[in-house]
Structures are given as C-alpha cells and as structure tokens.
Design a protein around this nucleic acid. Structure first.
Length: 956
DNA sequence: GAGCACTGC
C-alpha cells in the first residue's frame, strides 16, 4: 500500500508540511495555525506516508487531508489545554483525532478519551467505524447513548451523545474518568454542546489545579468560532484554532437570476425536470420545507416521469441522448447543452450569477451545467422513456421507507430524493450529484413570554446553504441549483442562531441549578439565552417548587436579582434526576400516591415522545391512496375513542388516549403490525417503551421501596386513579390552565367555543383532533399551544376548579380566611387550617374556597393558642382544659387584649415563632420551662404545683 | 373543524 504513483505531489506536500509548523500572529493577536493542505478530490494520493504506516485502514483511504496535520494537531494539544479544530465534513476529524490521541498515549483504562456527538446514530456508528479502523475491540472503543451502550472497564475511546456527558457531569463534576474530552460538531450549536462548552471552560482549570489536567478539543465544521474565541468570560486564554481542509469534491453553484416570490415548489419541479432531461446521470436531491410539500412534489414528478418496473436496464444516458436528438427543437428556449462537446454556453444567462464557486481544478474539465431559471413551457405530460425513481424523505417517515434512499435505484433509472432538512445534517444519501435548494426551511418559533409555538418558513443561513450544496459533492464533482439569486443569498444570515437563544430553557436551568450553579446569569454561555427566557424559566421552576422562592423583602431591584439566582429545593433535586421536562418531572414526583406511578410514567413518556399517531393528512400519491387514507383515518379515530375510556375516565382526555394507546400496544407485544393497524407510529412506540424503562429505573432509585417494573399487561386505571391522574397532571401544568369563556362573556363571535388563559389576550381553542373537542369542559389543562390558523391547545385534560387552589397555590391569590367553615387544627400536620376563597393569577377567575394552612400572621398565633388551650394540640394539656379560668375562644375576640392572660400567652408564642406544633416541640427542647408562666395564668392556683411537675407536657 | 422542521438526557 505504500507505493506512490504520484510522487511529485507528495513532495509538494512535504514542502507544505513545513508551513504547518509555523504559527503566525493574526490581526487580533489570536494564535492560529495556518495550514494549507492538499486540494484533494483525486484518488490515489497518499499524504506523507512515512508517518502513517501504523494506521493501516487510513492508508487505504489515502485522501483524508487531516492525516497530514497530525503533528500540528498533536503539538497544539500538547501545548494547550484547549484547542479548536475546524474542518468541514469529509475532513475525517471525527474518526482521526481520537486515533491521534490514542496513539500518542492520551488514554488508558483509567482515563479515557470522550467524544460527544449531537445525534445518537452518529455516536454509535462512529464508535463502530473507529473500532474497525484501529482494529480494536468494541470493549475498548465504545459508545453510550440514552438507552444503551457497550462501555466496559477497558473502554479507552468513548463516543456518546452530548446529553450523556452532561448527565455524567452531574455525578462527577470534574469528569475524572476522562483525560480528553472532544466536543464534535460544535458548529451546530445544539443546546447541550453549548452548555458543555461552558461547563468545561471551568472544569479544565479546576483539573489543572488538581494536577490532573484535562484536554478539551472543540471541533467545528465551519470557521464560525468567534463565540468561543472572542469570549473572555468563556476562555481567559484564547485557544488556538487549527484549520483542516476537507476531502470534498468541487460543487458548482448555480444561482437563479430571479427569485420566485412564493412558488418555490413549482420552481423545484421545473428544475428537476430540466436536470433529468438534460444532464448526465447522477442522483438529484431536492430540499423542501415540509411533509406536504415533499409528497406533492413526489406526486408531480412521478406523474411527469412514470417509473415502470418493466423498464429495460438501458442506461439513462442512452435514453437521454435519444430524447435529446428527438426533442432538440422543443428545448430551444433552454440552454443548449452538447453532451459530446462540453463547451456550449447557455444562451440566456448573463455572467453575474454564474459559477459562483467553481473549483480551479475542475474548470474546463466539466460541462457547463447552468440551466437558466425562466419558465420554460416544459409540459408536465407523462414521459415514461425517462424513468425517474422518486423518493420522499423526512424524519417522521417510517424507517423502512427512509432506508430506500440508501439503496441503489433500479437499473436504468435516476434517483431523485425529495427531502426536508433531515438530509442537511442527519442523513447522508449516497450518489447525489445534483442538489436543488429552495433556500427555505420550516422552523419552530416560541413566544418568549407565553411559550406559544408556531411554525414559520424562513430563508436559510449561508452556512446552511453551503451545507446543502456540499451534499452534491460526496462521491464525485457535483452541482447545486439554488432557486434564488446570489443577491438574495448575500442577504442571508451568515449562520443560524444557536438553539439556546431560541427555546424555552427551564429544563436547562433546572439541570444547572442541580449542579449548584445558582447565578445562571453569570454562567459562561458561548451565547447566552435572552434574559426574558431565563426569567421565565426561573419563574416556572419556583412555581413548580423546584427552586426556593426568594424572600419578598428588600428593594424591588434586589428582589428581581434574587429571582434570577434561586437555589434548588430538595424537590428540585429529585426532579432533576428525571430525564424529562420539569413540568413532567413534577408529575412523577407527585405520583407515589394511589399506585399512580406506572400510569404517570406512561403518560409522561407518551407526552415526551413526539407524534405518537400516524399522520394521515398528507397529500396522497394517487386517487386510490386518497380513498385509502380517508378510510384509515375514520377507523383510527374510532379506535382512539375506545382508548379514551368510559365514564369519568374520559375527562383525562387526550392523555387517556395516549395511555390507552400505549397500554393496548404493549399488551399486543408492541409489534409493527399492531401499530400499522391502529394508526400508531412504530418508532414512537418503541421510544416510549424505552423511556418507560428509563423512568421506571429513575423513580425506583429515588423511592427505593416502590418496587416498580414495566408491566406489558398494565391494566387500565380505575376511575378513581384516572381522577388522581388528572390532579397529578394539573399539578405539573399549573401555568397551562384554560377556562372556557362563559356565555355571558361572549362579546364577539370569535370567542365562540373559545378558552381564556392567564397569559394570552387572544382566544385559544381545543384542537379538533382532541377527544375533548366537543365536550368543552369548563377548566382544562393543555400540553402545549400551537398557533396555526388559530391558537390551538393540544394534549388536553379536563380539571375541576376546586383542585386549582389546592394543588396550585403559587398561581392563586387567596382572600381572607372564611369564618364559616371555621378554622381548625390538623393533627396530622400540627398546623392551623382554614378555608380561603381565591382567584386565579392575572385573570382573577373566582375559585371555590378550599382548606389550606392558615396564613402567616398574628391571627394564626391566636388560633394556635386557642387550640392549645382546648387541649387539641398537646394531649397532656387536655386534662386542664375544663378548669380554665377563661374560655379559649376569647383568644379570638377583639377585646382579648383586655385580659392579661391572653396577652401573656400570645406574646410567649410569638417570641418563639410557635404557631405550629413542630415549632412548639422545638421550643421545649431548647427550654423545658418555656410557656409555663404564661399557661399557669389560665388555671387555678391550686393546680400550679402539679402543672410545674408535669412541665413540659410532652412524653419524655 | 384540522396541516409540525430537527434533535439530545
């Protein structure tokens, strides 16, 4: 394998290698390793072989430019605690850098190399690939993802998802198991990688202090690393940046001259038709924004180029040549392309928008493939002589259908994949030579204050456009057709905003508080979330009881500051151990009662996994399919009505349907067949099964005596349990309560059947897919609100108004305690109880009076004194109650101050903050004579000696 | 009376 057939190039490379060792100061004083390495799409080139004869597999794959950089990279790592490596997809950094480190002795079984990936598949497949390349066992090169892993005590290289490492930091803040941590794909700026980088910026110096240095390597596919390098709060010493070239084939980018105003789907169709009719073989990948668009374009393309199984295996090439000669006249409006002479310039294209990124190497060696962007009257008439093998691709598509895009298309056909953004990063399709990019993406937006989400189609970023274009150059030089002008492209954002700035952060804040990071605002985020988002998160966590509420004293400014730096509560610590959203973690924490845990675990799992039910509203490929889909839809709706249960169970609403669906599916063994027959997404059900397992383990380790297990034959809940479940759900979704607009409040027709929420001025509605759509209960809680044509609540359950003040005191403003029913003493809690009316926060809905602890204040002491005198609180005092010199009831009279004994008792209680039993017992522990003098005034003198002997009146 | 891109613990 060491034979070199292109020696001259290797020598040139050696010369280049010298450059690699010189570091140069760049403008801002940043240290940057300037590297210029091979432009590298040609096969059979072996870079600087002498070095690499140990890495056999790498040798057979001789075009990885990163191999030439080993020395630079290792030198930088040796000299710096933190290094940033930039290299685009195809540079081989993910597979090679761990190997460099391993061979340089950076790992042992006592200190491993950890690599984080943003996706599970990547963690698993990279571990397998590196194990194979290094000829090492899986016991040494392993992976760990949410539900599974093959890590052993021999593991030295560990690939994992970013969330896994974050959880590990919770258990071992210094990450003492690792000698090196590599954060891969940092350019994607996923929420967890951002947090990891922030945490590691502190862990690295801490490890240094301990004399056990940890190396941090941040790997990014783009050069956008200023958020890491220009951020003094993050890294006090700017880490060096090493740039590595990629082994990508050149992709010629063609911009449209005009940007279609809205019909980008139609423009996609026309572009694909032209490519297919006129350009040499090679797969086409189209980027669109959603399932519906994907399906309708697939349908149009299949109609235009019907694909029949009985087509002969004649090459598409032959077919096209034939068609060309026949159709020459018709396509005159289009650029002329002579396939034998690769030199014809398109007739109607100016220079301005052409060949924006032509690679020097390829100039002249490739045909000019600009197609122009005018509306040609290309008919949609069926053309079966040019079979096009059209496949849809999106994330929610069944995996077996997704898998089709990875197999070679039937002989004599051209592959055309119509995809959403999955194809940009998550999935790589082989054999793509042409990319058609509509320039748009569908994104979820959250309202920072109300949490309402909506989906909007926006322009992509320049980085994203380049990533899409790169998909055409994986196996040979390719072409990317952008359906927008270069001027529009120049107006794109350079990069899309990091996820952490766009999403609610309550889960993240809880995780950070569990790491005892109280002042979240001071955390070295690479890019901080907006302050509103931090405040909203803190507020929610306080209401859930996960954080200790700040004292409501001091100045407003201090209060606000305190609100943003609350410490975690014991409940919060438990919640943080459950790997689900805080609202759901609260539900789990409450469910110990009435054997509800298995049900809550199931409901929480189902709410966490997205899209349980098969989507049937998509456009069909044919008329028959339309009918078929309609039939299926009706049947599945029926089944869901059955899952919704009987009687009062139905009030659990959509969550009951989820519970029923999971229960039925597991009972049937969770087979693909069952899912298909009942409108369930198989992949979703598998994920729920695994999540139930994980949550069951998590709950068991918190309550060691629960003895929970995942029961595949779980019985439906009883009606009573279903009622408890509604209360549990309410307790977690306190900020997601909605009340039906009353008939008398109906001012406007737009409020018909509408609900009002605390935070929104506009009406919200139960989503038509909800089983409670027609029931319209007075009070509901919802999982989320999505704005489409209206504001729709999804995942709806009915709740009873009297539960709200009882379960959600933080969301209620309470009025004065009622005289009737009168306040009472609660022997269980040792506290004074009373009934209080209340209103719901911000909207002031009247809520039924409920029994709660008597509010703090002098009246609570008065009631406590009364119950004490009556002998309700301390059993040993009961015997004196009949000899009392005044009635205990006078404690509560307005004129009670006129009696010295009432004042004495009250002052004694207040002095020691004794307005509940526990405080009283504690006071006696501190001072056994406490309260004796005050109490003595209430009984005849004859009994005073007896009393003194028995004091304190508690069991010894 | 409906239409949601993508992903991690």
């Amino acid at each position: 394998p060491l034979k070199l057939n292109k020696l001259n190039e290797v020598q040139a490379s050696e010369a280049e290698m010298k450059l690699l060792y010189t570091t140069s100061k760049l403008g801002t004083g940043k240290r940057m390793y300037q590297t210029k390495s091979f432009s590298s799409h040609k096969a059979c080139r072996i870079p600087f072989c002498g070095f690499y004869n140990e890495r056999k597999v790498a040798l057979f794959n001789p075009v990885l430019p990163i191999l030439a950089e080993e020395q630079v990279i290792m030198e930088a790592i040796n000299e710096n605690p933190i290094v940033i490596i930039c290299g685009e997809t195809g540079s081989g950094k993910t597979t090679q850098v761990p190997q460099f480190l391993y061979e340089a002795g950076y790992s042992s079984s006592a200190g491993a190399i950890g690599i984080t990936e943003p996706r599970r598949v990547a963690a698993v497949s990279m571990s397998q690939r590196v194990a194979k390349e290094m000829n090492l066992s899986k016991r040494v090169v392993s992976y760990q993802i949410r539900y599974e892993g093959n890590v052993t005590d021999e593991t030295q290289i560990k690939f994992m998802t970013d969330g896994v490492l974050l959880k590990e930091i919770q258990k071992d803040f210094l990450l003492s198991k690792y000698k090196v941590v590599i954060i891969d794909e940092a350019h994607e700026r996923s929420m967890y990688t951002d947090i990891l980088i922030g945490l590691l910026s502190r862990i690295v110096p801490l490890r240094e202090k301990k004399g056990l240095p940890l190396k941090l390597i941040i790997m990014s596919a783009t050069l956008r690393v200023e958020d890491f390098t220009d951020n003094n709060k993050l890294f006090s010493v700017t880490p060096p940046v090493i740039q590595v070239d990629a082994r990508q084939f050149p992709v010629t980018v063609h911009f449209n001259k005009k940007t279609p105003l809205d019909d980008y789907s139609g423009e996609c169709f026309r572009k694909v038709c032209k490519i297919h009719r006129m350009l040499p073989s090679g797969g086409i990948l189209v980027f669109l924004t959603g399932q519906a668009e994907v399906h309708s374009l697939c349908r149009r393309l299949r109609k235009a180029f019907p694909f029949q199984k009985n087509n002969t295996a004649e090459s598409v090439e032959e077919m096209r040549k034939f068609k060309k000669s026949r159709k020459q006249k018709k396509v005159m409006a289009l650029p002329k392309i002579d396939l034998d002479n690769y030199s014809v310039v398109p007739v109607d294209e100016g220079d301005e928008d052409r060949d924006a990124e032509t690679d020097d190497d390829m100039a002249g060696s490739d045909i000019d493939l600009d197609l122009g962007d005018g509306d040609s009257e290309e008919d949609e008439k069926s053309d079966s002589s040019l079979p096009l093998y059209v496949l849809p691709l999106y994330s929610l598509l069944a995996p077996e259908k997704q898998a089709k895009v990875f197999r070679p298309p039937p002989p004599g056909t051209r592959l055309c994949v119509v995809a959403t953004n999955v194809a940009e990063t998550s999935l790589t399709i082989p054999g793509i030579k042409y990319v058609v990019d509509c320039g748009k993406v569908k994104k979820r937006f959250y309202d920072k204050i109300t949490g309402v989400s909506s989906f909007r189609i926006t322009w992509i970023s320049q980085a994203s456009a380049n990533q899409r274009a790169g998909r055409a150059g994986r196996t040979e030089p390719g072409h990317c057709y952008r359906l927008y002008s270069s001027a529009v492209f120049m107006d794109f954002e350079k990069f899309s905003a990091p996820e952490i700035t766009k999403r609610p952060v309550e889960d993240l804040i809880l995780q950070m508080k569990a790491l005892n990071i109280e002042k979240v605002i001071n955390f070295p985020f690479p890019t901080p979330p907006p302050t509103e988002a931090l405040a909203a998160a803190e507020e929610l966590l306080i209401a859930l009881g996960a954080l200790k509420e700040p004292p409501m004293t001091g100045r407003l400014k201090q209060q606000l500051a305190a609100k943003l730096s609350c410490p975690i509560s014991p409940l919060g610590r438990i919640m943080a151990t459950f790997p689900v959203a805080p609202r759901y973690a609260k539900m789990l924490a409450l469910s110990r009662q009435h054997d509800c845990l298995p049900y809550t675990i199931t409901i929480v799992s189902a709410m966490t996994v997205r899209e349980l039910f098969e989507e049937l509203d998509r456009p069909a490929v044919s008329e028959e399919e339309t009918a078929e889909l309609k039939g299926k839809k009706a049947r599945f709706l029926q089944i869901q009505r059955i899952w919704a249960g009987q009687g009062s169970m139905q009030k659990l609403g959509d969550l009951m349907v989820m519970l029923g669906a999971v229960g039925a599916c597991e009972y049937a063994g969770c087979t693909r067949k069952f899912c298909e027959e009942n409108g369930l997404r198989y992949k979703a059900m598998l994920e729920i099964r695994r999540l139930r397992g994980q949550l069951t383990t998590a709950v068991n380790s918190v309550c060691t005596d629960a003895g929970l297990y995942v029961d595949p034959k779980m019985k439906p809940p009883t009606e009573a349990q279903a009622t408890y479940l509604r209360q549990i759900v309410l307790a977690g979704l306190g900020d997601h309560v909605a009340r039906r607009v009353q008939a008398e409040e109906l001012l406007d027709d737009k409020w018909k059947n509408a609900y009002k929420t605390a935070l929104l001025d506009d009406p919200v509605f139960i989503h038509p897919s909800s089983v409670l759509f027609k029931q319209l209960p007075e009070f509901v809680v919802y999982q989320e609100i999505v704005e489409t044509t209206k504001l729709y609540m999804k995942g709806v359950s009915a709740v009873e108004p009297e539960w709200i003040p009882a379960l959600l005191p933080p969301y209620c403003h309470f009025g004065k305690p009622l005289e009737n029913p009168p306040p009472s003493y609660c022997p269980e809690t040792g506290r004074v109880r009373c009934h209080r009316p209340s209103v719901f926060y911000r909207v002031s809905w009247q809520l039924p009076a409920v029994e709660v602890d008597y509010p703090e204040g002098i009246d609570r002491y008065k009631y406590f004194a009364r119950f004490l005198l009556e002998g309700q609180i301390i059993k040993k005092l009961k015997s004196y109650s009949q000899y009392l010199l005044s009635s205990p009831l006078i404690m509560l009279k307005t004129w009670s101050k006129l009696q010295p004994r009432t004042e004495a008792l009250l002052q004694a209680l207040v002095a020691e903050n004794c307005d509940n039993r526990d405080a009283l017992l504690a006071a006696w522990k501190k001072n056994p004579k406490y309260l004796l003098a005050a109490y003595r005034q209430w009984i005849p003198e004859a009994m005073h000696d007896d009393l003194a002997q028995k004091w304190p009146p508690i069991a010894q």
